[in-house]
Simulated scan of single mutants.
Amino acid sequence: MDSVNLEVLKSSARWLAQGHRALLVTVVKTWGSSPRPEGAMLAVRDDGAVVGSVSGGCIEDDLIDRLRQRGIEQTKPEAVKYGITAEEAHRFDLPCGGTIQLVLEPLTKASGIAELYEAVEAGRLVARTLDMETGVAHIDSAQATDGVDFNDKRLLTIHGPRYRMLVIGAGQLSRYLCNIAVGLDYQVTVCDPREEYTDEWNVPGTKVVRTMPDDTVLDMKLDERCAVIALTHDPKLDDLALMEALKTPAFYVGALGSRRNNAARRERLKEFDLTETELARLHGPVGIYIGSRTPPEIAVSILAEVTAVKNGVIMPPSLQVGAAKTAHGMVSSFVDSELACFA
């Protein structure tokens, strides 16, 4: 769960405890382009105070205006759509062709928001099922692969800990990568037993551990909401992390290095009793091909690939570093040979 939605739950629970009424707004379906994904949430207090986001701002303004004029009149959840017509899309600043469906839920004790917030804060991954007819909600354990499901009679949403990222190595590239990862709302842990690197680490919002990488992977109990990126260039550290991480359900495991180093790494990892299926999960050379050369550019390249994998986007070979560099090298060789004919 991203920090914005967590703040929505926290504020909603607090407002109810203080005696306020509140409306919880959840994005349940989108068509075409949409500024916020399914599952995004907004809470509006009875006096117009707001936390969270479901659009670029215009839908929020409309909801706040409606609430201030009429108060929270509804007694049970209802579904509404914005952006069905071109006029609405323009009015609410939705991208061309975009339509968004929201569930507006007046919160009560039966909503179980305080219990939901406590479960998320405790690190549990839970599913909340809302009965659209009664407004009663209950929570159960969930799988990381579950998502938002809405069928007019019930709304199922998944809530849980933020996505986690384990970065092996506290070097210069890691600094740039971790700064961006924090901005992407990952809970970032940096592992490096080398004191000369960790003593100077000062990236806000990250946690540094000095344990050995394999022990760190085991201690973190990685799940489907985790990514592991090895950046030290030192096989004694990177391989230790990879040999354990590839056995976990982590959605992304990658390592920095050239095509030749990546091939050598795969051969070494075979000695650690990894299966071909597990080895096939390794992303390397890590990142997408954008011609990156500097540490900040390489960090962008890596996190672009992590984001694509997280969102279920299949990268074409032309964007995969290894294939793209091979193709680029073949083109360069062809051009050189053609130019040689005219020399």
Rank of each mutant, 00 (worst) to 15 (best):
Lys236Met: 06
Leu339Val: 03
Arg164Pro: 01
Asn151Leu: 05
Gln101Ala: 11
Phe92Met: 04
Arg293Tyr: 11
Arg268Ile: 03
Ala181Gly: 08
Gln69Glu: 13
Cys191Phe: 00
Arg154His: 12
Thr75Arg: 03
Leu130His: 00
Thr211Ile: 10
Pro37Asp: 13
Leu269Thr: 04
Arg70Glu: 13
Ala49Cys: 04
Arg265Gly: 03
Ile64Asn: 08
Arg66Gly: 14
Gly52Gln: 09
Asp215Asn: 11
Pro204Asn: 02
Thr99Gln: 15
Leu23Cys: 08
Cys191Ile: 03
Lys310Gly: 05
Asp93Gly: 05
Ile72Leu: 09
Leu242Pro: 06
Leu319Ser: 13
Glu133Lys: 09
Arg14Thr: 10
Tyr252Glu: 10
Leu177Asp: 15
Arg36Met: 07
Cys178Glu: 13
Gly312Cys: 10
Val309Pro: 08
Lys236Pro: 06
Pro193Tyr: 00
Gly39Leu: 05
Pro77Ala: 00
Val167Tyr: 05
Ile158Gly: 04
Glu105Tyr: 13
Ala49Gly: 14
Leu116Pro: 02
Leu242Thr: 03
Asp46Gly: 03
Met315Pro: 05
Ile180Phe: 14
Thr75Leu: 02
Arg124Tyr: 08
Val44Gly: 04
Val188Leu: 04
Thr108Ile: 05
Ile168Gln: 12
Tyr117Met: 00
Phe334Met: 11
Ile288Cys: 10
Ala13Met: 01
Val136Met: 00
